[in-house]
Each structure stands twice: as C-alpha cells, then as structure tokens.
Write a protein that binds this DNA or RNA. Structure first.
Lengths: 215, 215
DNA sequence: TCATTTCCTGACCGTATGGTCAGGTGCAAG
DNA sequence: CTTGCACCTGACCATACGGTCAGGAAATGA
C-alpha cells in the first residue's frame, strides 16, 4: 500500500461522498417500500421513485433486489443489537429491563419501517438472516437469560422463565411499531402524541416490572 | 321463490358439496401461501399447486387474487372475534383475561398462518380490512376497555391503562405465532413441545396477571 | 334419454417486473 | 489538455404473473 493510497483513503473526495450519500438514500427508500409493500410487493421502480433516482442507478449500487433487501435487514439488525447494550451494565432488573424497554420503545417510534421489515423477514421464515438468528441472536439471548437468572438468584425479582420474559419484551415493544397502523386507527386515526408515547412506555414498564416483582 | 328452490337449498347435493370442499381447500392453501410469501410474493400458481388444483380452477371459485386474499383475512378475523367471547361472561380479570390469554395462545398454535396474514395485512396499512378496524374492532376494544375499567373500579386489579393492557395481550400472544420461526430457532430448531407450550401459556398468564395485580 | 347447469382446464394474452447494456457525462490525476 | 475511471441512464429484453376463454366433462332434473 502506497502513501498516495492512504492519503486518498483518509481524505474522502467527492467520489466517495456521492457513493455514500446515494447508498444511504437508496437504503432509506428501500426500507420504507419493503415495510409498506413487503419484499414481493416492493418494486425497484417504486424504490427508485422514492429515492428520486432512475431505476438503472439502483442496479449500479446494488446488484439485485435481494442484495438491496439483505442490506436493509442487516442495517436493522445492527440497530437492534445496539439497543441491547442497555441490558449489560445494569445492576438490577429495574435499570436493566426498564432501560431496555425504553430503548426498544424509542426504536419502535423512530424506526417503525425497520421493525416491520424485520418482522416480515422472520414471519417468512428468515430466508435472509437465518444465520444471524442461529449465531448472534442466539448468543445474545443466552447471555441475557443468564443475566436475568442471576437477578432471580440474587432475589431482585420473582423467579419467572427468563426466555418467555424476553419474548414478552420483544413482542410488546415491537408491537407499537409493527401494529402501529392498528393502534393509530384505534386512536381515532391519529398517531400517538408525545404524551401518549410516554404513557405507553410507562404502562409497558409498569406492567412488566410489576409482573416480575421488581417493583 | 319456489318450493323447488327451497328444497334444493335444504338438501345439499353433490354440487354444493364439491363447491364447499374446493373453496375450503383453496382457502386453506391460500392462507399458508399468503403467510409464507406475503400477498405480493404469493402467486396463484403456488396456491393452486398447494391446493392440488389447476390454476384456472381457482379463478372459477375466486374471481381475483385480491378476492381470495380478502376471504382469507375475513376468515381469520372471525376466529379472532370468536376467541374474544371469553372476555364477556367472566366475573373478574383472573377468569376474563386469563381465559382470553389461553384462547389466544391456543389460536397462535393452531392457526399460525392466519395470525401471520393478519399481521402482514395490518403492517401494510390494512388496505383490505381498514373498515373492520374502524367498526368491529374499535367497538370490541371499547367494550373490553369498559369491562377492564369496571374490574379496576371494583378493586379486582390495579389501576392500569386498559388500552395498553389490551395491546400487551395481543402482542404477547400473537408473538408466538408471528415470530414462531424465531422462537423455534432459539429452541434448537425444534417446534415447542406440548410441555413448552404449556409453560409459555403459564408464563404469559403469570406475568400479566401479576402485572395487573390480579393475583 | 335429453336438456341444462355446474364444474373443470389447457392454452393463451397483455402487462409489469427484475435485470442488462451500450453509450454517455463529468471529475480528477498526470 | 489528455487520459482514465467512477458515475449515470434511456432503451431494451426475457420472464413470470394475473387473468381470460373456448370447449369439454360431469352431474342433475324432467
């Protein structure tokens, strides 16, 4: 590797700027379209229109529709994992589980499309991210189960099945993204306001933390 | 209307028998295919193959793909509503909510495809069943909220937000169908056994009923 | 038996989709 | 200025899909 190559990599020129920006625009558009129409219902033309680019340009950055979809799902998976950090350093379930609920509820509000794409992917048998489920997600889950079991052993919460508790956390928090349209319809067609979101978070935390006897 | 017409309607011949049976076969196949591939990913050919019928025969019974899909979704909606009966006659939250959880968990096990089609439909903005959401589901929800509020007023459970409690019930029970593949993967690739299903039901009921202070 | 209705289906059609490609445009290094 | 490379795109192609239809098979009632 030459000094020139290093310099050109350190200083990103207009070229790499364009690539980065266009990939971001396309991925954002794709996430929305995949969430709204599903993989089969989404078309490259729809994504191109939403991204404001010609269809052929999409194929310049992403070889196939599957390739683009795979990138979208991977992007979501990383957001999930980042939120999971909250669990780690907490001294007990109130901070750990409570903080995790807060983080996941925030993601459901800020990244509803991502959550829907993930849900759709899993519902269809996880054809793209099966390996992630079997490695990263499984490892993460086992670690969290151990943490919860530790809290139980320390008497910080009731002896509940950690696995089903995790499922409840996932289900409840993601429901506000995946079924957001249903919730909005039952809210007189209006999206939840800031206050309503706060109330939702408080309700979920209250119900769960009471359920596990942490408060 | 003539007497003949009445008689022929009372006594179903082989004709109506054939129609009923074929419609059932097609609807069952369609439910599976729609659940596995989504509306856009499902093809009439796939449904026909799974039903063991020529594609043209599907169009004899169901005019369009949308028509077939609509019937599938309506079929699921009726199952949901039937399960909701459990709520009505219960004297308190332990029977009412506990029974509702039992019923919905059973449906998640016996009708996973239906649950997935419903979830997919809602995630995509409920293009087909929006009117159901705004009428039947809204009315049912308001009625259940009133029932829960009554239990709260009678001191049979803690004062929780009934609406978010309902969302938690839906989310948690349907999660076992919609995310069944993920749960199976985290269960060493094996479907939940009878005992594991019983444990799941017990965990959900325990967590929820403790959370609302009913036990 | 005959007439009528329902049921069935192979072959076909128009369209929309994912993907390709040749030929551009414009930036940047030498 | 020249060269090279990344970027861009209108036009095109093969395929697969939803849906149609003509014509036949089977059931039913008179």
């Amino acid at each position: 590797m030459t000094a020139d190559a290093q310099i050109s990599r350190i200083k990103p020129g207009k070229r790499t700027e364009i690539r980065r920006e266009n990939e971001r625009v396309i991925l954002d558009a794709a996430e929305k379209v995949f969430a709204e129409a599903g993989f089969g219902g989404a078309t490259m033309q729809l994504i191109a229109d939403m991204a404001g680019l010609p269809k052929a340009n999409l194929h310049y950055y992403f070889a196939t529709k599957e390739d683009l979809y795979r990138k979208v799902v991977q992007q979501i998976f990383e957001i999930w994992l980042d939120a999971a950090m909250l669990f780690d350093d907490a001294p007990g379930p109130v901070d750990g589980i409570g903080g995790y609920i807060d983080a996941k509820m925030d993601i459901s509000r800020t990244h509803p499309s991502g959550s829907k794409v993930w849900a759709s992917e899993v519902m269809h048998g996880a054809p793209v991210i099966q390996d992630y489920l079997e490695t990263t997600l499984r490892d993460w889950t086992e670690g969290r189960i151990a943490a919860i079991q530790r809290w139980i052993d320390e008497g910080k919460m009731r002896p509940v099945d950690p696995r089903h508790l995790l499922y409840m956390l996932w289900a409840t928090t993601q429901h506000y993204a995946d079924f957001g349209h249903q919730i909005q319809t039952l809210n007189d067609g209006q999206p939840l306001s800031d206050q309503q979101w706060a109330a939702a978070k408080a309700s979920v935390k209250d119900l769960v933390l009471r359920g596990i006897g942490a408060i």
